[in-house]
Each structure stands twice: as structure tokens, then as C-alpha cells.
Write a protein that binds this DNA or RNA. Structure first.
Lengths: 195, 195
DNA sequence: TGCTTATGTAAGTGGTTACTTACATAATAA
DNA sequence: TTATTATGTAAGTAACCACTTACATAAGCA
């Protein structure tokens, strides 16, 4: 078959251009050029631009990355756990920045393709955190509150911070500012939820 | 000059199509058709597609809308104030949903045009809330915390909820669910910040 | 050596797009 | 009535795009 590294280079280049210029705005010519290849090579690896787009979406899912995040902290104290979750969550978002930009920009246009992935992503994460909060509630560590609303609130703070900084303003905050902000979020949330 | 209502119809149609299909994806033909006009009429009102885009951006700023939101609540008790702010904020975002979708999707592509507007929007709102929190801090109503981080946390929860529901899942939650969620957010935040 | 495989260059095709030009029409104002 | 204004229909243009076809080349393998 075709060279794997060539294929990967096309996918990487495509992800970058789709995420910055959008599906329509990124041309096959430009994608190939950025990968250092002739346009025709792109079409030898992928039947069509649409097929390439789908492959990009499937190759860069962020789902598995985040699943393992929560179980690891269940033994640690509440505040410490949340700080770890906040930091990992933010870092994963940063790492997958291009993919998230792509999804946010194109959901309206290709809901069939994108919505399922994204819904799963939001839902799984949110729900897993809700389960964790529910556990803590049973142990009387946190106060009586809807755990799903709590999960929403916590992840929402972190996501909105990421969104504003990295997607909108396009500026990664320095580590110190980031850490302090997330710590501040955790403090408010912990204070607002402990029994 | 040209008819004002015709112009407005083009702008409205353009906003809708730009926000759902993106700048490149929305064609002048389709915009005109949706406005019930011939394509050539669009070009009689706007020199170019780009000029039309800029006019849309300037016509639908959400900035002034939100500025008046905060001063009105300064006499009310803390929790009540925050609930009002959360609800108004969410509703304004809903009302301007198309504009926000447009900005989020296109910032990467036209930062010169969009960033200034959006930066102002985030910054003003966030900063105004921070000032309000700072006031409360002086009155010893809320605890010692960075007011800007507090503002970020609070608006972040609300924005992320809006973003997930209305932009991603494209489903406006029913009033009851929405109210309860926002109330939950406010409770966590108030509990987490009161002295 | 000769065959296969992955790439390249070059040229082209049919469709679409932003935008233009020319001319017609209906309403309104002088 | 006549001139103006806002629209319409129709046709066209130059550029670009996704995708194709034909042919060349260089490397590795049989």
C-alpha cells in the first residue's frame, strides 16, 4: 500500500488547515503543499476531500484521552483531586486545541459527522465527574447538591477559561497564571460544595 | 438611496447564513435568495461580500447590550444579584446566538476584524463583574479572593453551559431546567465566595 | 534485469463563485 | 407626462476548486 508516513503527513497537515481555515476554506492543493507533496498524491491516499475530512475526525478523537483521568484520583483528598482534574483537563484541551477548534467551528455545518463525537465527549466527561461527586456526597464530604450541576459548573469554568484564552485570544497563558487561575477555581468550587 | 428595509433584510439573511455556513460557505446568491431578492440587488447595496460581512459584524455587536446589566443590581442582596446576572447573561447570549457562533467559528480566519470586538466583549464584562466583586469584598460580604478569577469562574460556568447546550447540541433547554442549573451555579459560587 | 510501487509534473475538465454589464419594469416624484 | 429610483432578468467573465488522466522517474524487489 501507500506509505504510512506520507498518509500521516497529509492527515496532520489537513487537521491544521481544516482547523484554521475550516472545511471549505482549506484547499486540497494547500493541504498537499503543506505536507510537502503533490496534490495528486493526496487523492491517491484519499478518494475525496470529504473522505479525508472524515479520516481526520476519526484519527484525532480526544475521547480515550480523557476517560482515564478520573479513576486515578479517587483516593486523594477532595481539593487535591479537583486541582489535578482541572489541570489535566485544561492540558488535554490545549493539546487537542486544533481538533476542538475544528469541532466548534464546523458542528453547525456537519452535525451528522461531528455531533456524535462531541456529544460523547461532553457527556462522558461530565457524567463521570458527576459520578465522582455523587460518591463524595454519599461519604458526606460534599454538600447536598445536584452532582450533574456541580460537574457542569466545574468543567464549565475550566472550559470557558481555555476557550477564551486559547481559542479566542489565541494566547496560551504562562504556567504561573494558569495554575493560579485554576487553583482559584478549585478553591471557589471546593468551598462552595464541601459539607 | 436604496431602500432601508431591503438593506436590513440582506443583513439579517447574511447574519443567519454566515453564522451557520461560515463566511466562505455562505454564497451571495443564497443570501440574496433568502432575503427574497435578486443577487444583483445585494451588490447594489454592498460593494462586495467582504464589505457585507463587515457591515454584518458592525450591525450586530452585542457589546452595548451587556454593559447595562450590572449597575442595576448593585443594591440587591448578593445571591439575588448573581442570579439576575446569570439569567440575563445567558439570555443575552441566546438572543445573540448567531453572532456568537459566527465569532467563534471565524476568529481564527479574520482576527483583525473579529478579535477586537470579541476581546472588548469578554474583557468589559469580565472586568465589570470583577469590579462588582471587589466592591463586595470591601464591604466584607465576600471572602478574600482574586476578583478577576472569581468573575472568570462565574461567567465561565454560564458561558460554557450556553456553549454546550445552544451552540454544540443546538438544543435550547426548557426554562425550568435552565433556571435550576443557573440557580445551582449561583449557589455553589455564593457558598464558595461569601465571607 | 525487469516488475512493481510510490511518488512527481503537466495539462485539463466541469462546476461554482464573486462580481459585472446591459436592458426591462414598476412605482414614485417633479 | 417625464425623469428618477429601486428593483428584476439574463448573460457573461475570470478565477478557483475538487478531481482526473497521462506519462515520467526513482527505488526496491524478484
Amino acid at each position: 500500500m501507500h506509505d504510512q508516513t506520507t498518509r500521516d503527513r497529509i492527515l496532520e497537515s489537513a487537521l491544521h488547515l481544516f482547523s484554521t481555515k475550516g472545511y471549505i476554506g482549506a484547499t486540497t492543493k494547500e493541504i498537499a503543499k503543506k505536507a510537502g507533496l503533490a496534490e495528486v498524491t493526496l487523492f491517491r491516499h484519499f478518494r475525496s476531500k470529504e473522505k479525508l475530512f472524515e479520516t481526520v475526525l476519526n484519527s484525532y478523537t480526544f475521547l480515550p484521552d480523557l476517560k482515564g483521568l478520573l479513576p486515578q484520583v479517587s483516593d486523594k483528598p477532595y481539593e487535591e483531586s479537583l486541582l489535578i482534574i482541572a489541570e489535566r483537563f485544561y492540558d488535554k484541551l490545549s493539546e487537542r486545541k486544533e481538533m476542538i477548534q475544528l469541532v466548534q467551528a464546523e458542528v453547525q455545518r456537519y452535525p451528522e459527522k461531528l455531533l456524535k463525537t462531541y456529544q460523547k465527549f461532553i457527556y462522558e466527561l461530565w457524567h463521570t465527574l458527576a459520578l465522582y461527586l455523587n460518591e463524595l456526597q454519599k461519604k458526606r464530604i460534599i454538600t447536598k447538591l445536584d452532582p450533574e450541576i456541580g460537574a457542569r459548573a466545574f468543567l464549565g469554568m475550566c472550559f470557558a477559561y481555555f476557550n477564551a484564552q486559547e481559542l479566542m485570544l489565541n494566547k496560551t497563558p504562562d504556567k504561573k497564571t494558569k495554575d493560579e487561575t485554576l487553583k482559584g477555581f478549585v478553591q471557589i468550587f471546593v468551598r462552595g460544595t464541601t459539607a
